[in-house]
């Protein structure tokens, strides 16, 4: 299943791994901020009891 990468395996796999880490970091950060903000807003709205 795994394609034959030959002597460049390190570079190719490294690229995919580095990209995965960077993008996962961005997505994770975005989701985390989103969830946190949603919760904070829900709390504030509940406390103030409007709308």
């Amino acid at each position: 299943m795994m394609p034959e990468l030959g002597k460049y395996a390190g570079a190719v796999l490294g690229s995919y791994a580095a990209t995965a880490v960077l993008i996962a970091g961005l997505v994770g950060l975005t989701l985390w901020q989103s969830v946190r903000m949603k919760r904070a807003l829900a709390e504030a709205e509940a406390r103030l009891g409007d709308k």
């Binding site: 034959e4 002597k7 570079a11 190719v12």
Partner: peptide
Amino acid sequence: RQGSTVKI
């Protein structure tokens, strides 16, 4: 020419 690095 580039071998498998073309996948990048």
